[in-house]
């Protein structure tokens, strides 16, 4: 007996992109749709400035930030690990091992360096849709995208985190 895959169906996996996405929604029966903070990350990125860090998920101090990657970012660093998941496009990541940590160990979220990092090149990553990259604690990183791309960042609410829930979420 064969299990699975025997039949008439052919399967197409549907991913979204900045230029091609469909949005679902909340059908409220006995609730307020705002309680679900429903948004679409491609829609958020499409309406964001390059490298703006817009929250689409928040759980206490932890956040999911959507970043429209377009051109070359500033150098940033963070006291804790962050993780960048490329949801659309191609993103290059340059990493530098800093000579010394720049942010206090209890600082949440990343900060801009305001210039070139002082340290040794640690490496480079070229990530495409579906690829997840570690942005290691206390390293400096710079991102580049020749064409608009979309990143979902796992991090902690920081000084450059942007909240605009009423603009991005379903409210009725």
């Amino acid at each position: 007996m064969e299990l699975g895959g025997v039949g008439l169906s052919t399967y197409v996996t549907k991913f979204g992109s900045l230029l091609d996405y469909e949005k679902g929604g909340v059908e409220a029966i006995d609730d307020d749709p705002r309680h679900y903070a429903f948004s679409n990350l491609f829609e958020v990125a499409a309406g964001s400035k390059p490298w703006e860090k817009v929250v689409v998920g928040k759980n206490q101090q932890y956040v999911l930030e959507v970043i429209r990657a377009d051109g070359t970012s500033e150098w940033r660093t963070c006291a804790h690990d962050e993780f960048a998941l490329v949801m659309d496009g191609v993103v290059e990541i340059d990493l530098v091992a800093l000579d010394e940590a720049i942010v206090p160990s209890d600082k949440a979220g990343s900060v801009a360096l305001g210039g070139e990092p002082a340290g040794r090149p640690a490496g480079r990553i070229v990530a495409r849709r579906g690829h997840m990259a570690l942005l290691p604690a206390n390293a400096a990183y710079r991102l580049r995208a020749d064409e608009p791309a979309c990143i979902l960042l796992q991090t902690i609410f920081g000084e450059d985190t942007v909240e605009r829930w009423s603009e991005i979420c379903q409210t009725v």
Binding site: G16, E22, K23, A28, Y36, F38
Partner: peptide, 18 residues
């Protein structure tokens, strides 16, 4: 156990479960 909502999520959608 009373129904409160139906949430349809497509690729790229983000939603919280209260």
């Amino acid at each position: 156990g009373k129904l409160r909502a139906r949430v349809t999520m497509k690729a790229g959608d983000v939603a919280a479960m209260p």
